[in-house]
Nucleic acid binder design. Structure first.
Lengths: 198, 198
DNA sequence: GTCTATAGGGCGATAGAC
DNA sequence: GTCTATCGCCCTATAGAC
């Protein structure tokens, strides 16, 4: 099976392809997409650079796969957490905890690549990723609207969504895992900053 | 005069060099530093690519000059605005207005490059830029501490500084100049989101 | 200060053997 | 599915003329 008959964002069931995507996520995050060569990537997974092009048509296709993984797996985690939450307040907390865990936790470099490598995505590939991003942000919007209706946060929820996501995204620039705060503590304190009722 | 006898971050008095930096800022912001070639830059200023290296030793030196310009000019503007402000509340507003004007206004691509191209800066060049960034953030910290003492914002000012700067930085990803909000209106509404007393 | 010309190397991607 | 070998291109930076 070659990749020509794949849908744009398959569930990455194929484990070899999935492994490549995970390794690429780390390299792209650490060095940037443009600075990471296909030779770097091949070496990191124990392949010659040419062999990568059996699994992906282009280097950009790898980037798109990384970004799609980052946003879909975070969306999945958020959906699971929201299903367990039993109040607007708990749902609100889930937004912060899932996002920061995905961004700062030990498993995921992919979400960070999603946030910081948009400029390297071609016009053709953008729409598909935007759909995935919008789906994630729609979950945020729902929860924030519910929280505002319950008097937990200020009512300007569209701007609130954008500012909060900006705050969380930026945490990768300064958060240190060996610092004073755990990821969960950070999530709690960031939530506290925007709550109207302590 | 060659560039070998220049200080690390001169006031960019030389107007030819300054022009190069301004044009580079726009290209680096729009295409990214790595994707922008010295040929692109030469063409944009009407020079052959080789001629650029009379003004700068390396391409990276251009990036560093852009980033230094972005942060120092924003710091200057903030200092001027703070000198005119006559209350903690006015100072707080100045933080938002200056930052967003610098980031989203018509004159500055340099600050955006400062925020998003750190990965391309060599280890040797980073410390100098970090000093400039810390100077800017120290101004923020002072004003936020004063605002917290006056009961305007929550008291966790170190985290508040980081989350607010993240919120503002992220605005470049979604703000549209032809949209419903002017930059000043946006600054007011973002400020409103974190004020304890309306 | 800017030009022409090019050195010297790295890049993404392909072809064909196994 | 992976390897070896390599194509053709583009990159930053330099040398020397003007």
């Amino acid at each position: 099976m070659n990749n020509n008959d794949k849908k744009p964002f398959p569930p990455e069931e194929n484990s070899r392809r999935m492994e490549l995507v995970r390794v690429a996520a780390r390299l792209f995050r650490d060095q940037g997409y443009e600075r990471t060569t296909v030779r770097d990537l091949g070496q990191a997974v124990g392949l010659q650079s040419g062999s990568l092009f059996y699994h992906f048509r282009t280097k950009e296709e790898i980037l798109v796969a990384v970004m799609a993984l980052g946003i879909t797996s975070t969306t999945d985690q958020l959906q699971q957490a929201l299903a367990l939450a039993r109040s607007p307040r708990e749902k609100l907390a889930a937004l912060f905890h899932v996002h920061l865990t995905s961004l700062l936790g030990d498993n995921q470099a992919a979400l960070e690549v999603m946030l910081y490598e948009w400029r390297s995505v071609s016009e053709e590939a953008r729409p598909g990723l935007i759909v995935l991003r919008d789906r994630y942000e729609a979950l945020w919007q729902e929860v924030l609207d519910e929280a505002a209706a319950a008097g937990l946060v200020k009512p300007d929820t569209r701007l609130l969504r954008r500012t909060l996501l900006g705050s969380l995204h930026w945490s990768v620039q300064w958060y240190r895992r060996d610092g004073a705060l755990t990821v969960d503590q950070l999530a709690d304190r960031m939530l506290e900053l925007i709550l109207l009722t302590p």
